[in-house]
Amino acid sequence: MSEFNIKKPVVPLPDMDPEPQIPEDELFFTEEELEQIERYKEKYPTNRSAVMPALWMAQQKFGFLPPEVMQLVADALDLPYAHVFGAATFYTQYYKEKKGTYVLDVCCSFSCQACGSYDVLDYLEEKLGIHAGETTEDGRFTIQEVECLGSCGTAPMLQVTNGPYVHNLTEEKLDQLIEDLRNDKMPPFTSVTLPQDEDEMEGNRRSDVEHTDTYQTPPETKRWI
């Protein structure tokens, strides 16, 4: 949405008179989708809580959530439009505008920041020639500055398009990641545990994932800070 960053902390106003971006004849939920929304509603005491899965579903369908889609979700859930807008803008995981194929969500909350996430951000910005919040011209990459993703133990880290996390970032890891993504190779989902835990549990406890990793304090030279 913006080039909001520590050097230029300016919060823009959303477009308050937006042009619709989804063609009118595509702007609807199918019977099945509406049934699914009904099931979400039943799951929660109030419809207000069902806004999360419903928005998620809409994002899967339309790719992003322009105002008219938020209105569609609001109508389906019988909720005020403003409530849906508030929820959608709170989470960086909901895309309010069209993003690149790969969205690099760089965590810039406290732990990651302390471990150099702004250097990660700078490195990526320079490498891809865009600012956080922007998308490359070829439509392949978007960089976002996001809040804590709950993986502070592996800081600095980023998430790729609401999917797998990439942990303990270094320049090399970022280079590899971009290279892989250029070839449409997504990083694997990686479960990271602490060595002492692995000793106790005789190995990584996640037996259901292909890729596991053991946390190691990175060597001094490779660290961002």
Binding site: P9, L13, P14, P67
Partner: peptide
């Protein structure tokens, strides 16, 4: 925002975004 939700009932205001970026506003177009 609570006034429009709880007192007047128009539910027209919400808090936009989060953290240092947040402020109350109507939904775009409203």
């Amino acid at each position: 925002t609570r006034f429009t939700d709880e007192v007047s009932g128009s539910c027209q205001l919400t808090i936009n975004q989060r953290g240092v970026k947040n402020y109350p506003i109507t939904g775009p177009g409203e």
